[in-house]
């Protein structure tokens, strides 16, 4: 029977940090699993800097931040299992893990869920019009551009002005694409002021508040969107070939649905609540990791 003392699901900044904190608290026999082939969660695709100011006193890029965590991880005996999906978690403190060629059941003492967020997507919006190609969530676009070097389109409309929306507005602009507008339903942009100054103002990207996309046009590929000014109700057709949605993040904890109140389960990082900064997700994960680690080391 396969067992471990502490199972950590998700090897992003929160999962790795929780693992390290548990290790430091004296816990041994820690298994860290992730579906990706590399650790780091969302950070490897965040090529911009701005991470780590609170924790390291300097601005790191996403990959640099992961490197710092990995340096520490490599000095421990924490087992990292990549390309592994956790299919289910049961009330008897077991999980079914699946990877190429292997499906196995693992019993654990404690579990930390550090599975991050999923992005809210266009499907949830009840938007009018067709469903053509050329619609991406901001995170999906970031992965495709930064990690896969793909070319998504020329004329970009971004719906949502959260941090990810603003960062992608800058990214497209840096790639030589034309960001027609970032649209925000609320009266004020959604993300941090820092990102507004660095990504929007600095590049003179038009950001329109109180506006939203009402209809999507295009048969094979997006060819335009109908934009509504929410205060006047006026609508305007905007020609574009790509629509990026930055509609916000939803903590991803479907895996432990119905088990949230178990005393052996902890949530750490963005799956617990959405953090603005990776440092704050890490701080929370370290606290959780220490707590789980102490419980297990006594």
């Amino acid at each position: 029977m396969k067992t471990c003392k502490l199972l950590i699901v998700g090897a992003g900044a929160a999962g790795i940090s929780a693992a390290l904190a548990a290790w430091d608290a004296g816990c041994r026999d820690i298994l860290l699993v992730d579906r990706a082939s590399q650790p780091g969660g969302i950070l490897p695709q965040c090529l911009h800097d701005g991470f780590g100011l609170a924790k390291y006193g300097k601005e790191l890029t996403g990959p640099e931040y992961v490197m710092r965590l990995m340096e520490k991880l490599n000095r421990t005996d924490i087992v990292f299992l990549p390309k592994t999906e956790v299919l289910s978690v049961s009330g008897d403190q077991s999980a079914v893990l699946s990877r190429r060629g292997v499906v196995e059941r693992l019993y654990f003492g404690q579990m930390i869920l550090a599975s991050g967020c999923r992005e809210k997507n266009i499907g949830a919006l009840c938007i009018g019009g067709t469903r053509p190609a050329g619609i991406f969530t901001a995170g999906q676009a970031q992965e495709r551009i930064n990690l896969r070097h793909q070319d998504l389109g020329d004329e970009i409309v971004i719906l949502g002005s959260g941090d990810l929306g603003m960062i992608m507005a800058r990214r497209f602009t840096q790639e030589g694409r034309h960001v027609i507008a970032v649209l925000e339903q609320e009266a004020h942009y959604g993300g941090m002021a820092r990102n507004y100054h660095r990504c929007i103002e600095k590049y003179s990207i038009p950001l329109h508040c109180r506006r939203t996309v009402r209809e999507i046009h295009g048969k094979g590929r997006v060819c335009g969107v109908t934009v509504e000014a929410l205060d006047s109700g006026e609508r305007e057709y905007v020609t574009c070939d790509t629509l990026i949605t930055a509609l916000g993040l939803i903590p991803e904890r479907e895996l432990v649905r119905g088990l949230e109140d178990r005393e052996w389960l902890f949530l750490a990082g963005n799956c617990s609540r959405v953090h603005d900064l990776v440092d704050s997700a890490v701080a929370e994960a370290e606290r959780i990791g220490r707590m789980a680690g102490r419980r297990l080391s006594v």
């Binding site: 053509p132 190609a133 050329g134 495709r144 896969r148 070097h149 793909q150 070319d151 998504l152 389109g153 048969k219 094979g220 590929r221």
Partner: peptide, 13 residues
Amino acid sequence: GPGSEIVRAAHEN
């Protein structure tokens, strides 16, 4: 259908 390419050729890795 036709014309629904998801990414474009230019910068393909």
